[in-house]
Nucleic acid binder design. Structure first.
Lengths: 209, 209, 209, 209
DNA sequence: GATGAATGAGTCTTCATTCAT
DNA sequence: TATGAATGAAGACTCATTCAT
């Protein structure tokens, strides 16, 4: 018996088709309840009920409440990372201006995947314990950007690359997130995206200069 | 019975000296427990014990758990606002470059007030319900900056002023916060501050053009 | 946080008169439910209900179900030990025959304290974990008897003293317990006591030579 | 619907060879899990997994958890009874001293069959309900001994025969069991056996006159 | 027959909040 | 006013058992 370390990994792999559906239903229900009620008020009972399964079934696949959320986070973060990752790859050799635009665009796109879920996940899930790690898309993105920069500008010191990546990632994420919360119209109209370009283009030019 | 609207205001104004001390002790205890245990694990019992008062006394001054945290947030946000507000006031007529530097500096300073508490408050307190509003230092700061900008550049459209303010506020806050969490050394060394200037100076020049 | 070691000690000492009554009521209720329903079916809810307190009150004094039973066991074992202990002390210098009779009598008496509770406690409480230790009246009794023997017969080797004590304690306890379960009339009539004397008197004479 | 009377008998007689193997595997798994985890923590799931069958298959042969344990107990008790029974039969006409020695020896042997299982079965299985009866090897043994005695000493009153049998059975079982738990070395060395003879030989001589 | 997915009643336990003293 | 005992709704989680495939 491990010392009551909260496990986050699913309990058992669903092998039959039926159970794969069940797991999917549970995760979808989790997302819905999360969005509708917030993290604190999300109970495993409510999730099970919404998913149309019994509470026992839920616990057959997820060892505890947190593992439910963790799975959701993992999926969501993965989508974000691959969205941005794809942009980076595609523009590996594009002119920097174009590449930056693409990165920003990808960052905004990532927020469009499921804005409501994104908001709950990143604003209400307590960042302590293991969930914190799972939530940490930012540092992974920063790492990806850092690598991208160093390949493009080999002369850059490690420290500078890290700093610039941090600035880029943080700015894009923060501005987009802020727009989601406070100015969804600016998000839709693309204005945020344009403004972010205005902010980062000169900075990046100077930094890589 | 009134429809269980969660009140956030303290239950009664402490008029006597002793009461004021009690309230202070309770709030300090709240902050400590919050930092030590996180929001979820912060119980009113623990707070009362740490404050050295009975649970009954605690409820004499605060109608519920949230009001405790809300009071803490209010105090903290007020400090932040006045820190930045002072900078804005002092540099009302300073050259823009100087003013921007001051704003950024104030933003960083604000995070130095009580970084641990700041982190818990902004990362773990669920942003729904009323606590969300109390937490919303950002939009207030944005408002202050917006007003500052419009006074300095009367030609600016309302919409542009709002956007620029949003960019400034968001960037400063996000970068500083990120530094608190991931690179405290860069915060202490002032590097973050410098980098933020590098990011915002050109943007602002162009924007106010 | 200690690694989920089941604590058996009561949670907090009742200081006020009212709470001391509450604790007593809870323990009495525990005994009643235990006797009525057996260990497995004894739920904290049932105990609280029977005690006429809320489940919350129960948990204010006992951290978990096992601690409830443990407290009961401790009390019960203490009574047993003091019953036999008293007999040993009083007959420290009595002729061996008289002393043996007294020990046996005390052993039987110990079973009369609360036979029904005794039965549940010793037959149904799982002897693993900590409860096992708490339940181990036997080895303590054995120790007491061993010491008694060595004081009376200083020539006895440690090993022999231990063996004889084991035989005495085990026989008295087993026969009495068996009588409780299968022949309560023999217990009441004193026949078991007489027969036990017949069994142990010759053995002890021979053993002590 | 019949009033939920817990059945203890296996659900159906395994007629085919494969079925018999399955049943055996399940029972062996039960014993292993029981020994490894204790009664409380023994789950039907764990048993099925260990037996390498599905939970559904397990329930095909055993109607409920208790029937599993009951079957195990029945087997184990049967072994005990036949061990002692054989000794009684073989020594039906042997001198009493020899016979007693043999009985005691058989009693000890019975504990050597599977000490770990014996311990769990007799210490942790709740003695209420039907399991209690299944567990009651003692009274059966007592009956066998009683019959043995009456055949050997026809003058003995029924009541005396019962009492002596009770004393013999209880003493042998208690001392051996105690040795298993607290002094396994005395069990292995045969010392317990010798001491039990010393205890019972004189008693029996006197009792049978 | 065998499988394992699904069920859900039942337990323990927590903690914000009330109220008698 | 202060105290802390008492409350109980609510939630996480288990596990014996059933049943569709």
């Amino acid at each position: 018996m491990p010392a009551k370390t909260t496990r986050l990994s699913p309990r058992k792999e669903p092998v039959q088709a039926r159970s794969r559906l069940t797991v999917k239903a549970i995760l979808e229900a989790t997302a819905q309840v999360l969005v509708a009620s917030g993290y604190q008020s999300t109970t495993t009972d409510a999730v099970a009920k919404r998913a149309g399964v019994s509470i026992g079934t839920l616990y057959q696949y997820f060892p505890n409440k947190e593992s439910l959320v963790a799975a959701l986070i993992r999926d969501h973060v993965e989508l974000i990372l691959s969205t941005v990752g794809a942009a980076l790859e595609v523009h590996a050799d594009a002119p920097m201006e174009i590449a930056l635009r693409a990165i920003i665009h990808a960052g905004v796109e990532a927020h469009r995947i499921d804005p409501a879920l994104h908001k709950v996940l990143f604003e209400q899930v307590p960042r302590d314990k293991l969930l914190g790690k799972a939530l940490d898309a930012s540092s992974k993105l920063q790492g990806m950007i850092e690598e991208f920069l160093r390949r493009r500008a080999p002369g850059l010191s490690a420290s500078r690359a890290r700093m610039i990546a941090l600035v880029l990632e943080t700015s894009v994420e923060a501005l987009t997130h802020r727009a989601v919360v406070e100015a969804p119209d600016w998000l839709r109209s693309g204005e945020i995206e344009k403004e972010t370009v205005k902010l980062l283009q000169p900075y990046l030019s100077a930094a890589l200069g």
